[in-house]
Simulated assay, not measured.
Amino acid sequence: MTSPDILCIGSVLWDIIGRTDGALRARGDVAGRITRIPGGVAMNIAMTLARFGLKPAVLTAIGADPEGDELIAATDALGVSTAYVFRTELPTDRYMAIEDASGLIAAIADAHSLEAAGEAILTPLADGRLGRAQAPWRGPIALDGNLTAGLLEQIAASPLFAEADLRIAPASPGKAERLIPVMRHARATLYVNRQEAGLITGRAADTALEAAQALVAAGAARALVTDGARPAADCARGLEPLSHPARAVQARRVTGAGDTFMAAHLFAETRGADRLQALTRAQDAAAAYVAYEDFHP
């Protein structure tokens, strides 16, 4: 079995997204398109990294049902290894979103199978396949906030993650506060948007730069904060704060943009880019994603 370059831990599910090019009012009924594609924060990051040429593997829970079998096949076909996936008797998780021309209108995430699986998804990091407590995984790990608060607290203190380059993303604003214990990991980089940063720190910031600085003051080792079409920021303990503007584009989709930003930033740093270069490439990748443009890192 080929060893992965990076582990993506968290949600791998079916994204069911309905989109209309017009405006959608409450209780409205409009024409549009509905798609079903592999998704979830961990999966979105893994897919992007695979497209860039890395060999990611996902650690997650997927149902042992027909939808799960389809999802496993689709994930492998995209260049993402499912060799370490925990198969559960619960139904395969799903995410449903409604978008219009202005962006995301509403979404529901059904990640009950992942939450119920708990630490079982981490078994390959402890049983020797990917590491063990005495010789933990030393490469990058992308971790998403769909894990339970208890499991994230466990990860923050676990020797299995002591040597990892830990990259953390929230699943949604409603789950952002779950990340407080793990963001303080000495080798962690936190990726959030300005709203999520405010939920974690307890106060709203006017800019991504202010939000990133507040996260570091609250205990994060390093924080990257995005703010839609406005500048993003990178702040870390003992280093100069950075900010970089977003490229202006016509947004044609929203779901997954933050995950693309994170994946592009991580990829750039694995290829030796400095902090400003990595931030610039991440902003460019996110802009290309929302505009349905090709992007080559």
Rank of each mutant, 00 (worst) to 15 (best):
Glu240Arg: 12
Arg129Gln: 15
Ile180Glu: 07
Asp234Gln: 05
Ala204Thr: 14
Glu177Thr: 15
Phe161Met: 13
His185Gln: 08
Ala157His: 07
Gly128Met: 04
Ala164Asp: 03
Ala171His: 01
Gly228Ile: 07
Arg178Trp: 01
Gly228Val: 02
Glu163Leu: 11
Ala221Gly: 04
Ala221Tyr: 00
Ala186Glu: 15
Glu177Ile: 11
Gly238Phe: 10
Ala204Lys: 14
Val192Ile: 10
Thr201Trp: 04
Thr207Gln: 04
Ala142Ser: 15
Leu160Ala: 08
Leu199Glu: 09
Glu153Cys: 01
Arg187Glu: 05
Met183Leu: 13
Ser172Asn: 09
Gly145Ala: 06
Asn193Cys: 05
Pro140Ile: 02
Thr226Arg: 04
Glu153Gln: 12
Ala223Tyr: 04
Ala176Pro: 05
Arg203Met: 08
Thr226Glu: 07
Gln213Ser: 10
Ala188Tyr: 00
Thr123Lys: 15
Leu152Pro: 04
Pro231Phe: 04
Glu196Met: 07
Thr226His: 06
Gly238Asn: 10
Leu151Asp: 02
Thr148Pro: 11
Ala133Arg: 13
Gln134Trp: 03
Leu147Val: 11
Pro181Trp: 06
Pro140Met: 02
Gly202Cys: 08
Ala236Arg: 13
Leu166Thr: 06
Ala142Leu: 03
Tyr191Lys: 07
Ala217Asn: 09
Asp127Gly: 09
Thr123Ile: 09
Pro136Asn: 05
Leu199Ser: 00
Ala236Asp: 01
Val216Lys: 09
Ile180His: 01
Glu163Asp: 15
Ala171Ser: 15
Gln195Pro: 00
Ser172Gly: 07
Pro170Ala: 15
Gln154Leu: 06
Leu199Lys: 11
Pro136Cys: 06
Ile141Leu: 10
Ala157Arg: 14
Leu190Phe: 07
Ala149Asn: 05
Glu163His: 12
Thr123Val: 13
Ala208Gln: 00
Ile168Leu: 14
Leu151Glu: 03
Pro140Gly: 09
Ala133Glu: 15
Arg222Asp: 03
Arg237Pro: 00
Pro159Thr: 09
Cys235Val: 15
Gly128Gln: 06
Ala208Leu: 03
Val216Cys: 14
Arg132Val: 00
Leu143Asn: 08
Ala233Cys: 03
Val225Cys: 07
Leu239His: 13
Pro124Glu: 14
Thr201His: 04
Leu209Cys: 01
Ala214Ile: 01
Asp227Ile: 00
Asp127Ser: 07
Pro136Ile: 05
Ala217Glu: 14
Leu215Phe: 06
Asp227Ala: 15
Ile155Tyr: 02
Arg237Cys: 08
Asn146Phe: 07
Pro159Tyr: 09
Thr207Met: 01
Val216Gly: 12
Ala120Met: 12
Leu151Thr: 11
Gly131Phe: 01
Gly202Tyr: 07
Leu160Gly: 01
Leu209Ser: 03
Leu130Asn: 10
Gly118Leu: 11
Arg129Ala: 14
Ala157Glu: 13
Thr148Met: 11
